[in-house]
Computed example of a mutant assay.
Amino acid sequence: MPAVRLFEVGPRDGLQNEPRQIPVAEKIALVDLLSRSGLTHIECASFVSPRWVPQMAGSGEVLRGITRAEGVSYAALTPNLRGFEEAQAARADEVAVFAAASEGFSRANINANIAESFERFAPILAEAKKAGISVRSYVSCVIECPYDGPIDPAQVAGVVEKLLDLGCYEVSLGDTIGAGTPDTVRALLERVLTVAAPSQLAGHFHDTNGRALDNIDVALDLGLRRFDTAVGGLGGCPYAPGASGNVATEAVARHLTRKGHAHGLDLAVIDAAAEMARAMRGDADV
């Protein structure tokens, strides 16, 4: 059975929604611990304006300060060409751009409609290609939007197809407010898989309503083998009211083990990182 890859987003997507300003040294310590867990991809920086997401201030220092492990790709979120240039200067191994499947969320998140967001991505993809840097992409609100309501899977498929055409190697499908159910996730993926191969997709599930693992099972049944997770269940989204944390890395790893899917993670290290993450957000005893 093919191995399942977990893409750790806790140090970026997780910490960006924590109310406390996490010191750079603590972020570096978390990434360094995760680097010893068997993870192959860790997103640990975001070059968005600190005015809008102050929790991500110091991302360049994080990337420059971590102890890089062989075989681990360290990723950064880049909203525009300036952000890409900053990520490149800080030696990010890969970058990510972010789109939305709903107009309401796109405007709330990046102050641009979906079409305008693609105009912003094009220069990033062009420069990344020149530099030999891989580009991943996120699509938010693939099931339901806090502003626009339920989303048509065909609309998601159209956004995914454009991102792949631009040159993104992978598209992460974000159930941003955790509204997905096994039935809606299946309907979404069956439509998106008409424009993308399973190897080009990742599932990004929030556990708002306790259904993330069930939704992952549906994705596994349909051939996906890549999922975004956040150690300790960190996360949420500043622009998605009601979004709770990402599904926890340690929970998904154990679930995969029970299902017979190899993931390659050292659970003792993951558990230690989860404890560190919970301490960073002030609930170590929860």
Rank of each mutant, 00 (worst) to 15 (best):
S46A: 14
M56A: 04
A90F: 11
Q88Y: 15
R82V: 14
D228S: 11
L63R: 05
G58W: 03
S73Y: 12
N111Q: 09
P182D: 06
N215L: 04
K27P: 01
L222A: 09
L39D: 03
A212C: 09
L166N: 12
S199Y: 08
L265I: 10
S106T: 03
R186S: 00
G203T: 01
F121Y: 06
T257Y: 15
A179G: 09
V159Y: 03
R258P: 06
R225C: 07
I114H: 07
D93N: 13
I216Q: 01
A202I: 02
P241W: 10
G233L: 04
V31C: 02
D175V: 00
P11F: 11
T257E: 15
I270Q: 04
F84H: 04
A187K: 00
A277T: 05
L256Y: 12
S199E: 13
V142Q: 06
R82L: 14
T257P: 14
S73M: 12
T181F: 01
F205A: 05
L81V: 11
Q155N: 07
V160W: 00
V31A: 01
A251Q: 14
C145L: 02
L188D: 00
H204T: 05
F47P: 11
R211I: 04
N17C: 11
E103P: 05
Q55F: 08
P123S: 07
N111R: 12
D165T: 12
S117N: 13
Y138H: 03
R136Y: 11
A240S: 14
V231L: 08
H206M: 06
N17A: 09
G233P: 06
S172Q: 06
H263E: 05
V247R: 13
V218D: 00
H261W: 15
V9I: 15
L173F: 01
A90C: 13
V9M: 14
Q88D: 13
I124T: 08
S117P: 09
D165F: 10
G203V: 01
V286N: 07
V48P: 02
G174D: 06
N80Q: 08
V160Y: 00
R186W: 00
D152Y: 02
H204R: 07
R254F: 14
A131D: 13
A25M: 08
C168H: 02
A75Y: 12
S59T: 03
A262P: 08
N17M: 11
D214L: 15
A279V: 00
E43F: 07
G174Y: 04
F118V: 09
R258T: 15
F205R: 04
A96V: 12
E119P: 10
H41N: 15
P182T: 04
R226F: 13
P241E: 06
F118T: 05
V218I: 14
V135K: 10
A131C: 13
A251W: 12
G233E: 03
L6I: 13
D214Q: 15
I114S: 07
M280G: 01
T257M: 15
G203E: 01
D152V: 02
L6K: 11
A108Y: 02
L220E: 02
L77M: 05
A273S: 04
A89R: 13
A277W: 02
A92K: 02
R36S: 08
S140Y: 03
M280E: 03
S35P: 11
E250D: 10
G233R: 04
D266R: 15
G167I: 08
F47V: 10
A202Q: 04
V286Y: 12
A273D: 02
A187M: 00
A96H: 06
R82T: 14
A115C: 08
A112E: 06
E18H: 11
S140K: 07
A272L: 05
A29C: 11
